[in-house]
Simulated scan of single mutants.
Amino acid sequence: MLKLRHIYFAALGLGLACAASADEQRYVSDDLLTYIHSGPGNQYRIVGTLNSGDAVTLIGQNDDAGFAQVRNEKGRTAWIPLDQLSAQPSLRTRVPALEQQVQDLTQKLNTLDAGWNQRTANMQKKVATSDGVINDLKKQNQALKDQLTTAQKKVNAAAVQLDDKQRTIIMQWFMYGGGVAGVGLLLGLLLPHIISRRKKDNRWMN
């Protein structure tokens, strides 16, 4: 009877300790296979196994026995040695996640690289287009300069021709004016003689 009472109190204390512990996420350590027991010790019968990396929920633990009570993903409750639990995911779980992260980062880098290559290509096209526009503007500018030079030469030639025509016209006017002046001078010299001779002729006839 006394022995049963001690077992009862021990079970009650264990239950209280288990209830006081908050449920926490744990992972089976990287051992290949872990046996789980029906109670906190190897003397309890084996009720199953857990594989490395399996996720379990920590319900409570018995520090004296070095065992923890856990619940697996299927909702089954059992006991497992504390040293076979880890707060970090096992390598079996972390490696695929790390590989996925590496794959995602590689894809992002490839996308960024492709984006930069596309931007670089677009910038090169824009620069090439700008160079073409600048060259065209330079050609147009040179053509306009050539046209301006030709126009200036034509203007200078026209100015020379105009000066020559003006000189010719001026010389013609001088010649016309000189001729008129000469005729007037001759008339001025001849008219008095003609008039005086007529007078003399009239006197002789009278």
Results as ranks from 00 to 15, higher is better:
132 G>F: 04
76 R>T: 06
32 L>K: 09
165 K>C: 12
146 D>A: 14
175 M>H: 07
46 I>G: 02
5 R>P: 02
72 N>Y: 00
44 Y>F: 15
166 Q>Y: 04
91 L>P: 06
136 D>C: 10
71 R>V: 03
128 A>K: 06
73 E>W: 04
30 D>Q: 15
184 G>C: 13
67 F>D: 01
126 K>V: 06
75 G>L: 03
122 N>G: 15
23 D>M: 14
161 Q>T: 15
183 V>E: 06
111 T>M: 14
128 A>H: 06
50 L>R: 02
96 P>F: 03
69 Q>D: 03
21 S>E: 00
113 D>K: 14
45 R>N: 07
92 R>P: 00
80 I>A: 05
118 Q>I: 08
7 I>C: 08
89 P>V: 05
44 Y>N: 12
71 R>H: 04
58 L>N: 00
109 L>P: 06
39 G>Y: 00
194 I>P: 01
187 L>S: 05
157 A>R: 13
181 A>V: 06
150 T>S: 13
200 K>G: 05
194 I>Y: 07
128 A>E: 12
59 I>L: 14
162 L>H: 14
68 A>C: 00
39 G>L: 00
151 A>I: 09
133 V>P: 02
48 G>V: 07
183 V>T: 11
39 G>N: 04
106 T>S: 15
23 D>V: 14
105 L>H: 11
175 M>W: 08
122 N>C: 13
194 I>L: 08
80 I>S: 03
92 R>V: 05
130 S>I: 08
79 W>D: 02
28 V>K: 01
185 L>I: 13
35 Y>H: 12
123 M>E: 10
41 G>D: 03
163 D>T: 10
188 G>W: 15
129 T>H: 10
13 G>S: 06
130 S>D: 08
150 T>V: 12
73 E>K: 11
176 Y>P: 01
46 I>H: 02
166 Q>M: 04
194 I>H: 08
144 L>T: 07
27 Y>L: 11
166 Q>D: 03
68 A>P: 00
9 F>I: 07
165 K>M: 12
147 Q>Y: 08
117 N>K: 13
140 Q>P: 07
58 L>F: 01
199 K>M: 02
168 T>S: 14
124 Q>F: 01
41 G>N: 07
52 S>L: 05
21 S>L: 01
68 A>Q: 00
6 H>F: 13
171 M>Y: 06
144 L>A: 10
154 K>Q: 14
182 G>T: 09
68 A>I: 01
65 A>K: 09
185 L>G: 11
182 G>C: 08
